[in-house]
């Protein structure tokens, strides 16, 4: 049996590499999801963007990078800085920060292999069909729900 029998999430509409980060963030907050896959104009998988990666972009670079500041308590709320950086998200695209080198699941991936990869991943994994076409995303919750139903638990 492969993951084809599992009802994974279909691809999210309208998120392409040139979609603004702000739009991607609004979509994720609206749909209560933390990860969204990108696809190019041909429907091929182009990476994943997450609320974590967008939140990182709000943090000043001096704290994000290696040997950077490890503590920002002294900077207080810095509400203005955060607000200004949120506004900047409108001018930036998801393609700039999307994670491309992620493990992917083939459409006919066996369920145990999918379970292994998901257990090692911190995010849902993209399901890729022929020619790299994005078919959807499979999350741990979806897989576990399916397994529970199969086991009649």
């Amino acid at each position: 049996m492969s993951i084809q029998s599992i009802p994974y999430y279909p691809p999210t509409n309208g998120i392409y590499p040139d979609t603004s980060l702000l739009d991607a963030l609004k979509l994720m907050l609206e749909k209560h999801i933390n990860h969204v896959p990108l696809r190019d104009v041909d429907g091929k998988f182009s990476g994943i963007v997450s609320t974590q990666s967008i939140l990182s972009e709000l943090i000043p670079a001096s704290a994000r990078v290696e040997h950077g500041l490890s503590d920002l308590k002294f900077a207080g709320d810095s509400a203005q800085l955060l607000s200004s950086r949120l506004h900047d998200l409108e001018r930036r695209t998801v393609g700039e920060i999307a994670k491309i080198n992620v493990p992917v699941l083939d459409a006919d991936c066996p369920i145990l292999e999918a379970a292994l990869l998901l257990s090692q991943s911190t995010s849902p994994l993209p399901v890729i069909g022929k020619d790299g076409i994005l078919l959807g995303m499979l999350s741990r919750r979806t897989l576990l729900t399916y397994l529970m139903q199969q086991a009649e638990l």
Binding site: P60, S62, A63, L69, L72, A75, L81
Partner: peptide, 16 residues
């Protein structure tokens, strides 16, 4: 410089 530069960059970021 490893100690001064990160704080300097944070402050210049804040001051734009």
């Amino acid at each position: 410089v490893l100690l001064v530069v990160p704080v300097a960059l944070l402050i210049t970021d804040s001051l734009r």
